[in-house]
Design a protein around this nucleic acid. Structure first.
Lengths: 250, 250
DNA sequence: TTGTTGCCTTGATTTAGATCAACATCCATG
DNA sequence: CATGGATGTTGATCTAAATCAAGGCAACAA
């Protein structure tokens, strides 16, 4: 599938003077622009499970995830919940021009965010077109990801959903590029079974059962509840129902 | 839900000299920018059911829908299909910077598109920041719509899905603003039962059954297969499972 | 007029995943 | 080191939607 993977700015283009390299917003920043960003920037950290903002609450900043993993979710009146966004390091949170959050934003693991006060950030976007251009790129990538996710929600079986989620996390979690060797890779699942079920549009029981099934068949190996080893990534990929080429693997 | 409705540019800001008012891309255009757009613009029309491009095919233009309704769909190897985008007049098609279509683009009704050659359009975006800004706005709106759609696919019942789709079309189809009177409105369904099922992640039999159920209960009235009358919009809205305020109703 | 074709509807049956329920494991804490 | 709460697993049963199957109806062509 032709989904474009979120582009990471090559290290050579990062803002070296920037204490944290918030690649999301200042990939091409000039010194004066960087100064301006510094002026309106602050950090916030959240513990695993903590809510960053509730849907409908006012949000006086936009932010970029520095470390950890967050989620965006929608809740129906009767409590049914669907995750609609997964936030990984360098992902952008918040919509310039909107002053309340459209979604519940939650820290799945401990999270550090680099925040920018919203109003001055918006002003800066007007003066600095490449920030908007970068944001457009990122938003288009997110839209592609959302559409891939819609296929998963609408048409995949529970087994395919689980395999897809594991492959998505394995692919996107930069931390485990290191622990990859041969066809095998391993990582810590950043999501509880409940969070996985909210991601996939399933119940947590079904998630648990399918995880057990994949384990029994040797497609995954678990160490404790959360640590996952994928002995053969291509084998797991075949269970996702996606085109064999993997499409958006980069 | 705080989804922002796609913003239509007020008539006062439209390009009066532009034969079709492709509001999507030239809301604030200066005369010289308008000229540049005219240079790279052409029209194409498609019959209902015709495919505009297949996923993976090269697409040498980006476009704005002038009239009619189109769809974006993804297909799995075994033929399972999921619609991932609905294109209504003024919606934008194609991704600047990408030369092949990520999705099957299909005309649901007869469609006219205002196309711009991709390369020059991209060049123009670099020179003309407000086009990019407008595109960012539109992409963020689409992302919100996609996330609403994810909630529908992941968590709603068949009945709620059908009610939601009818409300979405009723709300977005500008043509029927006119046929609204009191709480009732009516319109021609632009989708076949099969297309509805691809939108909703259901089978066409389930779509048909739920339509019949809503008809029997008087929530909708049908004239022929395709013409729908909604006697009381609020009553139908209650069947969608969404928050009572409707959220993104404008 | 009589096929033929494309949509749509309805009925009978099956099934994947939900729901209800019990129990296991792992910590953190008094 | 017992206690309690959060998290995860597994089993039994139920059900919403899928699947399989048969027709209906309008448009159109021979």
């Amino acid at each position: 599938m032709p989904r474009t993977a979120p582009k990471l700015i090559p290290a050579s283009q990062e803002c070296k003077d920037c204490p944290i390299r918030h690649r999301a917003v200042c990939a091409k920043c000039e010194p004066d622009e960087l100064d301006a960003l510094e002026q309106i920037k602050f950090y916030r950290s959240f513990e695993a499970g903590q809510t960053v903002v509730w849907a409908g609450d006012s949000m006086e900043f936009v932010a970029s995830v520095v470390t950890g993993i967050g989620t965006l979710s929608q809740t129906m009146e009767d409590g049914r919940r669907q995750m609609v966004g997964l936030l990984l390091p360098s992902d952008f949170v918040g919509r310039p021009g909107r002053d309340t959050s459209a979604y519940d934003v939650t820290a799945a693991t401990d999270v550090v965010m680099c925040c920018f006060r919203r109003k001055p950030f918006q002003d800066m976007m007007l003066r600095t077109p490449h920030i908007g251009q970068r944001l457009l790129e990122m938003t288009l990538d997110e839209l592609d990801a959302a559409r891939e996710w819609m296929l998963l929600l609408g048409r995949k079986t529970a087994r395919e959903k689980i395999a897809s989620l594991l492959c998505i996390i394995a692919r996107r979690d930069a931390s485990l590029k290191l622990s990859r060797s041969g066809g095998s890779m391993s990582f810590d699942l950043p999501l509880t079974r409940e969070a996985m079920s909210e991601y996939l549009g399933l119940t947590l029981e079904t998630v648990s059962r399918q995880m057990s099934a994949l384990r029994k068949e040797g497609l995954i190996v678990t160490e404790g509840k959360r640590h996952i080893v994928i002995p053969d990534f291509d084998l797991l990929l075949e269970e996702t129902g996606d085109d064999s080429d993997g499409g958006f693997l980069v």
